[in-house]
Structure formats: C-alpha cells, structure tokens
Amino acid sequence: MNPLNAKKLLLSKWTAVQPVRKDKHFMVTKVIEPPVAGDNAEWVDIEAVFSRATQRVAWRDLQNEEVWKQGWV
C-alpha cells in the first residue's frame, strides 16, 4: 500500500474487509484537526455509503490491510 498522507484523505474511498451491519464501502467525510496548530491530524470521520452511518477512526488505522482496503473493491 502507498503511504497515506492525512492532508489527502478527505473524500478518499475505503472498503472494509469484514462488513459490519451491511456497511462495506466508506468515504472519509471529515479530517479532524488537532487543537494545537502545526500538529498532524489523528482522526477522520468515515461515512458508510449504504447507511450513511458515521464513525470516527484514527487515520493511521486505515493502513491496516487486514481491516481496510483503499478504494471500492
């Protein structure tokens, strides 16, 4: 997998390896900025395409290929 950059995550697409509640495809809808300016973002909000449910995950967790695949597979 290519290295992720927090600045380029907004509107990126992801596929969950193990779907949860029929949700398999997700899109990053918000990158949570840190309270201290200059620090890197740590969290992103991802929205399920099917149910529109939103969850907050650490953006570095998206690099775990056992849980997430980049793009809609």
Rank of each mutant, 00 (worst) to 15 (best):
V17L: 08
L11V: 02
T29N: 11
T15Q: 04
V17H: 08
S12I: 08
I32V: 15
K7Y: 13
K69S: 04
F26V: 12
S12G: 07
F50W: 11
K13D: 06
A58H: 07
Q70V: 06
I46V: 04
S51T: 05
V28I: 15
D39A: 13
N64H: 08
S51Q: 02
V57W: 07
R60W: 07
A41S: 14
T29Y: 09
A58Q: 10
K24Q: 15
T29K: 15
S12Q: 10
E65Q: 09
D61V: 06
A58G: 10
R60K: 13
F26D: 02
A16T: 03
P19R: 11
S12F: 09
R56K: 07
A48G: 08
A37E: 15
V49W: 05
R60S: 10
E66K: 14
A41M: 10
K22R: 14
E33N: 14
V31T: 13
D61N: 11
K69C: 02
R52I: 03
T15W: 04
W72S: 01
N5A: 05
E66S: 12
L62G: 00
K13P: 02
K69L: 07
K7A: 14
S51R: 00
N40Q: 15
Q55A: 09
V20Y: 11
S51V: 02
K30I: 11
E47A: 08
E47L: 06
S12D: 00
K30P: 10
W72R: 01
D23N: 14
R52V: 05
I46M: 01
Q55W: 04
A48F: 05
P34S: 06
V67G: 03
L9G: 03
A16N: 05
L10F: 05
M27P: 03
K13Q: 11
V44Q: 05
K24N: 08
E33W: 15
V44F: 01
I32W: 13
E66H: 08
Q63A: 07
R60H: 12
W72L: 03
F26S: 04
V57C: 08
A37H: 13
V44C: 07
I46W: 04
K24G: 07
P35W: 14
R60G: 01
H25P: 07
A41W: 04
A53S: 02
N5H: 09
N40L: 15
D39P: 02
V28C: 11
A6R: 10
K7F: 13
V20R: 13
L9S: 06
L62W: 00
R52H: 07
D39W: 13
I46E: 06
W59S: 03
W59Y: 00
P34I: 11
G38C: 11
K7T: 13
V17C: 08
V67D: 04
V28D: 10
R52L: 08
E42Q: 12
Q70F: 03
H25T: 08
V49T: 01
K24A: 10
D45V: 15
V44W: 01
F26E: 00
W43P: 05
W43L: 14
V67T: 04
H25L: 13
A48W: 01
E66M: 09
R21E: 12
A53Y: 03
K69W: 00
E33F: 14
D45G: 01
D61I: 02
W72T: 04
